[in-house]
Simulated scan of single mutants.
Amino acid sequence: MSLSSANEAPRPVRMVFTSRAGGVSSSPYDSFNLGDHVGDDPADVAANRGRLARILDLEHLVWMEQIHSNTVTVVDGPQEEPVEATDALVTTQRALALVVQVADCVPVLLADHVHGVVAAAHAGRMGARNGIVRRTVETMLELGATPDAIQVVLGPAASGRHYEVPAEMAADVEKHLPGSRTRTEQGTPGIDVRAGLVRQLMGLGVTNIEADPRCTIEDESFFSYRREGTTGRQAGLVWLP
Rank of each mutant, 00 (worst) to 15 (best):
V198M: 10
R161M: 14
R161C: 11
D172T: 03
T184G: 05
G187N: 09
G203Y: 09
G124W: 09
T139N: 00
R194M: 11
L141W: 10
M126F: 12
V193M: 01
I132W: 02
P166C: 11
T207L: 10
G124V: 08
V118K: 13
I132S: 02
G205W: 06
D192W: 01
K175F: 05
Q200C: 07
L201C: 01
T139S: 04
R181V: 04
P189S: 06
R129T: 09
A171T: 05
Q151Y: 15
S159W: 04
T184C: 07
R125A: 11
V165H: 12
T136P: 05
G205A: 04
R183L: 14
E164G: 06
D192G: 00
A128H: 05
D192C: 02
G179W: 05
G127N: 03
L154R: 12
L177H: 07
R125F: 07
I132V: 15
I132A: 02
R199A: 14
A121G: 07
E164H: 14
L204D: 00
M169Q: 06
Y163W: 15
L204V: 06
G196R: 06
R134K: 07
S159H: 08
D172R: 05
V152R: 15
A171Y: 02
D192S: 00
V137Y: 00
G205K: 04
G179D: 04
A120R: 01
L177D: 05
P178R: 06
T188N: 04
T184L: 08
T139E: 07
A170H: 11
V133C: 00
G203H: 06
A123K: 01
I132C: 03
E185N: 11
A120N: 04
G203N: 04
E174H: 01
A120I: 03
T182D: 08
L204W: 07
D172Y: 02
L154Y: 14
A145H: 05
I191H: 02
T188R: 11
V165W: 13
R134Y: 05
R181N: 02
Y163L: 14
G203L: 04
D172G: 01
R199Y: 08
V118G: 12
R134F: 03
V152C: 15
I150D: 10
A157T: 06
M126I: 11
L141I: 12
G187R: 10
R181L: 03
R194W: 13
G187L: 12
L204F: 08
I191R: 01
V206K: 13
I191D: 03
I132K: 01
M126Y: 10
G127K: 04
A121W: 07
Y163H: 14
G187M: 10
L177T: 05
L204Y: 07
E168M: 09
